[in-house]
Structure formats: structure tokens, C-alpha cells
Design a protein around this nucleic acid. Sequence first.
RNA 1: UCCUCGGUAGCUCAGUGGUAGAGCGGUCGGCUGUUAACCGAUUGGUCGUAGGUUCGAAUCCUACCCGGGGAGCCA
Length: 478
Amino acid sequence: MTIFTAIHLLFCGAATAVKAGQRIADVLRQGQVGAMVDLRGWVRSKREGKTHAFLDLNDGSGLAGIQVVLTRPDFDGQLLALTVGTAVAIAGELVASQGKEQTVEVQAQAVTVIGPADAETYPLQKKRHSFEFLRTIAHLRARTNTFGAVLRVRNACAQAIHQFFQERGFLWVHTPIISTSDCEGAGEMFAVTTLDPRKAAAPASQPDFFGKPAFLTVSGQLEAEALALALSNVYTFGPTFRAENSNTARHLAEFWMVEPEMAFCDLQGDADLAEAFLKYVFTQVLHRCAEDMAFFQSRIDPNVLANAEKIIHESFARIAYTEAIELLHRSGRSFQYPVEWGLDLQSEHERFLAEEHFGKPVIVMDYPAQIKAFYMRLNDDCPPERQTVRAMDVLAPGIGEIIGGSQREERLDVLTSRMQACGLDPEVYWWYLDLRRFGSVPHAGFGLGFDRLVQFITGMGNIRDVIPFPRTPLNAEF
RNA sequence: UCCUCGGUAGCUCAGUGGUAGAGCGGUCGGCUGUUAACCGAUUGGUCGUAGGUUCGAAUCCUACCCGGGGAGCCA
């Protein structure tokens, strides 16, 4: 069946099925007892009694479904078909509930099965399922309480991010998904080609689509810098791809990243923005998704609300890398990995700082140049053996690095020699260097893993459970 | 990629050399304005895959596949 045929059937063949009904969340919030309601949704559970049967109906508009009361024997002929997962339309009257778990319910007058679901083979039960199992049925897991809540919070996060930047005059810019600079320094990339990989090695005479190797982007930062040096304040928000063989609860091969970039801005301004940003997003999500957040608090992680309050109300700790090293030394703790100036902080060190020592987000700044990217601005007045760059990482309790940013090197000569020291060919980056030749200004920005942010807010333990259809090594079924 | 734990009914798991089990789910019946409903009966298996050891393997050995947790890389 073509899509056109399907749409045609939807609108012409089953008009009653697509007539706009009311959203359950609206009815629960604003419905007047005695009003007639017209609801569409999926049956979450059915309980049958001698005189009445009860349905929990959910349409995704909120965590809570609405209870539908079916008086027997009026609906006896339909009860068998109203299994878990069935799509139904319910017409009836909103009445005060005699039950204890809800204030209102729908006294059904007409029930229409729109799409049946075979109880023998429908994979979702009324009982709780493990997240591991639900990942194998990602096309159905949005119908569960947890994933409905995750997706509503994810939506609220995205909306809050746009609102935050838009209120501050940042332009949302669209940087390319396909990139031909294969050495942005962020690890393995996915190749993009029109050459048939099933054929033997392509003849050298056959050019690929772009005439040079192309890849899926690992970051929109370099392009965002170009746009910031014209528009002052910009941000990207889009998909990002890393082909690393990472198998952890914090990594995806395809994820969403937010990258603000500000002209006329230094590292302090960058850190200030990162902190204000997180406070804003948490405030918005707590306000807009109170019910879902209460669910995460009670069913997923009993610390999510306390953590959110800390983000919103406490100022983030700020510490220089060099101080952090000294602090780790003084802690008296024995770590598995060495703590030494010039070595990167390991997960265990970051966790100690964010979770134990400070108990709130920490911004670590001014890292050694040797462990950071070429584009980060060299600090002045450093002893040569202790050269640092204006980098900052925001470390969040339970998540680790959620934001990584820096002030960018705006001086042409310094940037060129840094690239050469890092083994990069300045010729390849000619346009990036042009930005320093013409009207260069101090500028800064950061990258935020959107999915990690959702993970952080919801308390979900695995990043694969905060994105609808996760892509990870050996997993792209849906 | 490394370390580690695991893969047995639709789901969650027990079974560690001798006839494959429980709870939940599904189905049928009963009961009840129910709400993780309850009570009874019933249904349900290529024990991840392929080899090997053994009279006999879910169980022991080898290889591989897949999943969880941790680490590295990072966002």
C-alpha cells in the first residue's frame, strides 16, 4: 500500500477513527463533571467485575490515563475485544469517581474498537518490564509509563533550550550534517559515499559524490564559529554521529548536540552561559512536566528532584584544573588511575569531585594544553612546562561530563602553530584560519550532549532509554 | 576494544551430571466499584548457536553470537 493510499483510507474510509477527539490530559485537568467527552487512546489495562468493567485509557498526553467505566451487561459483547494495547474511541459522560485513585472517570456510552491487539501476542503486559526487554520492542515501548514520561520530558527540554537561546538573541543555525574535514579531532567518523560498497574496490577514475572523502558530522563547532563571527550569538541543535565502538550507558553512535557559540566572549562568559543554561532548562522542565518528574522521583531515582533543586538554586562550583589535581591529592583517597598534573581526569576523579567533594555540578577550567584540542585558546603567562588552555568541563553528579567548552584561539599565528604541533595541515583548514585573518575576535562556546541532559534530568540509568530509537554498535533495528 | 556477569516458557527467574520448574502474562471459571485487583484451573520450552567430554549435558570443556554492568574514548 502506498502512503497516499493509506492516507486516503484514513481520511475517507474511516472518518470516525480520525475525527479529532479530546486529549485525556486536558479532560483530567479542566473537564467539568457532567460534560460529554470524546476520547481516543490505547487500553493500558482492563478489570472486569460482575456489574462493571474498568479500562485505563491513555493517549500519551500525560502520565495519568483516565478510567473508563463500562456498565454490564451493556458492553458484554465488546469486553473480550478490549484487550491491553487495543486502540479505542470512547464517548461518554465525565462523572465523579466512586473509586479512590481518581477524582473523575468516564461513564462510557459508546465504545469503538479502532485497532485491535491480540492479547496472546501483544508483547506489553500490565506488569512492569525490564528496560533491556523494552529495547527489543522499541516500536512499542513509547506506550509504557516510563517512556511516555521520558519523551514528554525530552520534548520539554528541547523546547526550553530553544526558548533559552531565543530569549537571549541567539540565532539557531543549521550547520552541515555531511562534513569533508575528516580530522575534527573527535574520533571515528561514519563515511558517506555514493560508491557501491558491494562492488569491489572502485576504480580510481570514478569520483565519489563530493570528489573527496565525506563523513557524517562529529561537531558543528567549526562552522558555528564562522557564523558567530558574523551574527555574534548562535547555536546549533541537531544530530551528531560518532563511529566509536563505545559500549556504555552514556554513549550513542547517533545523538543530539547543542552548541552555542558567542563572539566577543571569554571563558568566564562561556561558563556563566553554561550555568544559566542548565538552571533555565531544569526550571522549565520541573514546571512543565511536574507529573512526569514526580514519576521519575518515585520509580526511577529518588534523587532526581533534589538534584534538580541543587542545579536550580545552588551556584556551581568552579575550580581550575591545577587546583582540582591538588584537591584530589589532598583527599587522601586512593584512585585506580594516577592523579598527576598533565594527565586527564578519569571518570573516578570526576565523580569524586561532583558527587562527593562538592555534591553539585563543578566547572573545571584551564586544562593542560597537551590533553585538549588545537582550537582552544592558550592561556597567557603560563610557565612553558605548565601551559594551559581556556577549556571548561561541566561535571554533573551521576552523569560526568555533560558540557565541554572553551574559549577559541583567535590569534592566527598561535592557532597555526598549534595545528602544526597537533599534526594537522593548516591548508585543509584554510577557511577556519580565514576567520582569524579577517575581523577575528575573542569568542567561546560549548557542546552539550542533549541525550545526556535528558538522562541527567530524568535519572534514567542508560542513555539508550532516553532516545526513541537508539543507535549503538550492532543496534539499528528500528 | 578491555574486564566482568549473564542468555532456560510471552516476561522475570530457579534448576550446577540422572524424567525441564515457579511466579507473572494468556485462556477458562468464580468473586468483587475495580485500580500492580483477588481465588481456582489451564496453557506454554530447539535450555543463545556450533562442536566436544560422558552410558547420560540446561548443568562440564572449546569456539562463536547476543545482552547487562564497569572501564577506555567522549557529549
